[in-house]
């Protein structure tokens, strides 16, 4: 097992190098380029443009730009943003905690809700509970996030008023009320709408996988055997079913955790959340190579890492899988 993990980690290095080359090459293809922001501005003369091209290091050959970036990474640096002129690491460091705060809470919320819901839905297949939950899952899945977010804002922020203050019932965006002391209520109030959108979205997916996994297990012969032996239903489910039923969900979770670090672009956009999703999107718009490279490689590294962790957890949960 240790040897297996070690081998996989070694394999990850060339994989990540390959990805970084691919991403770097793709990035050069961003239409517009980093100087697009200086265009269409009467104050920027053609001479200014040529000078900026030189001074921002854009005249250096591409392969050399890549090697410079790689060298910087090996020194624990991610280069400097072409736009804000600040270290890319600082730019990312300012957004990452905000994103993990929102996505993390939403993810845990969805997970903690989905396991029991999926389990009960499967065991009581076609009960009213199952129908209600399946419906809810379908709905959560089928509603476009940005549309749902906007409807929530119009409802809870624009239309409904707080009876005590006369202000909006819930804040329509941001992480806290600016210029006031931080209180728990205030933070929760700001978290409520964006987290609900994310939870409903994640929940549906998780419940479906949990339910499907559990249903499969319930139809397996060993469960029927256990039933036939007269074991209590709860015992059957917990002892024999659960561990196998959670397998599909584990795969899904392994795919999702790295995404938490990327932030939820649409939710962050609608709820003015200063997170990674928006940093990523504005970096594309601005062709801010260093920041974009940092964001994308962080995400790639996590995906590779969690791919490995998923496989290990799989092995732990399913003894039929052997690693050689």
């Amino acid at each position: 097992m240790t040897r297996y993990i070690f081998r996989r980690l070694l394999q990850a290095i060339p994989l990540l190098l390959l990805i970084s080359i691919a991403v770097f090459a793709l990035m050069q293809a961003i239409p517009g380029g980093p100087l697009a922001a200086y265009e269409n501005n009467p104050n920027i003369s053609p001479e200014d443009l040529m000078r900026l091209q030189e001074e921002l290091g854009l005249n250096v050959p591409k392969w050399q730009q890549y090697l410079n970036w790689l060298g910087a990474v090996l020194r624990g640096d991610l280069g400097t943003s072409l736009v804000t002129r600040r270290p890319a690491l600082t730019e990312i460091g300012e957004r990452l905690p905000n994103t993990l705060y929102l996505s993390g809470i939403a993810f845990l919320g969805a997970l903690l809700l989905s396991i029991p819901v999926g389990l009960v839905s499967a065991v009581r297949q076609y009960s009213w509970f199952d129908h209600a939950m399946t419906t809810l899952a379908f709905m959560g899945y089928s509603i476009p996030v940005f549309w749902f977010g906007l409807v929530l804002i119009i409802l809870f922020n624009v239309t409904l008023k707080n009876p005590l203050t006369g202000g909006p019932l819930l804040p329509g965006g941001g992480m806290y009320t600016i210029g006031e002391d931080l209180t728990l209520e205030d933070r929760v109030a700001h978290l409520l709408l964006p987290a609900s959108v994310l939870i409903l979205h994640n929940l549906s997916n998780h419940v479906r996988y949990m339910r499907a996994g559990m249903l499969d297990v319930l139809h397996q012969d060993y469960i029927r055997t256990a039933h036939a032996k007269g074991l209590k239903e709860r015992a059957v489910i917990m002892r024999h079913g659960f561990k196998n039923a959670i397998l599909p969900l584990v795969t899904v979770i392994g795919l999702e955790i790295p995404g938490l670090f990327n932030g939820a672009l649409l939710t962050e956009t609608i709820f003015s959340w200063p997170g990674m999703g928006r940093l990523f999107f504005t970096s594309i718009e601005r062709a801010d190579y260093a920041v974009l490279m940092g964001v994308l490689m962080l995400s790639a590294t996590l995906i590779v890492l969690f791919g490995l962790i998923t496989d290990i957890v799989y092995a732990f949960l399913d003894p039929r899988i052997r690693f050689d």
Binding site: I30, P31, G32, G33, L35, A36, A37, E39, N40, P42, L49, Q53, L58, E285, R286, A287
Partner: peptide
């Protein structure tokens, strides 16, 4: 296309710059 493309630079193959367009609409002064 997004404004960074429509407005874009020569090196980024902006059609406005290279001349491979017929009509292009935006605001400027």
């Amino acid at each position: 296309a997004p404004s960074s493309v429509v407005i874009g630079t020569w090196d980024a193959n902006s059609p406005r710059r290279h001349g491979n367009f017929d009509l292009v609409q935006y605001s400027t002064s």
